[in-house]
Nucleic acid binder design. Structure first.
Lengths: 104, 104
DNA sequence: TCAATAAGTCAGAAAAAGATGACCAACAAT
DNA sequence: ATTGTTGGTCATCTTTTTCTGACTTATTGA
């Protein structure tokens, strides 16, 4: 007997929260920008005319909270804020690369 | 000059559609069931009491349309329908494995 | 004939995600 | 003092996703 009523099988997926973050709208695009190096909020606005501030702002916060992006205030003039991939973000890049290799 | 106004950078992510399918609700859980072998609709209903028919039905259709799951009508009695991972589905399993290795 | 099982669909409601336009605070330049 | 830039937030609306409960169709067993 492989089933016991007191032992339930675990169907949780440890990667699911991160997966949902990186699959959200504008996330892969932002990721691609980040892969080229540090960038600013205003740069995203220029690159993605179809996106609105709110959505980009929320996307950046999600990614920062997931530990994928690092946010830094640059004290040089003009004072500005820079986002860049964290080491974890570099790992996540592998997910995009991997999934892109799967045939249609 | 690295920028030319007539050449826009491409920020599309080829894996995005598939990524959105496998990140959807109940998808990782269904995937985990599928990884154990062929299964039926009614089995999912028993395993996931928190899910509703509609959501599971839509999830199965999405995954079938994405080429991740194969649907087969089994002519044995009682007549029933079986879902199982396709070869592409096995590839997708690598995405879940990969993302699960990334530290919090 | 009546009830049960298997695998759903359908209309509608609720919740979550995304979009819009107005607004704001810090700082710099005129 | 006013204007421009950078990097947002806020309230509100729309769209998409998910959930709920009732209903359906085919087959089978009593």
């Amino acid at each position: 007997m492989t089933n016991n009523s007191s032992i339930a099988k675990d169907y949780t997926c440890p990667g699911e929260p991160l997966l949902r973050v990186i699959a959200g709208k504008w996330k892969p695009q932002i990721f691609k920008v980040a892969a080229d190096g540090p960038f600013r909020f205003s740069h995203l606005m220029k690159e993605f005319p179809g996106a609105n501030k709110q959505s980009l702002s929320v996307a950046l916060r999600d990614m920062e909270e997931a530990g994928i992006l690092l946010k830094t205030t640059i004290s040089e003039k003009p004072l500005h804020i820079e986002y860049q991939l964290s080491p974890k973000g570099v790992d996540v890049m592998g997910v995009y690369k991997y999934i892109s290799t799967i045939q249609k």
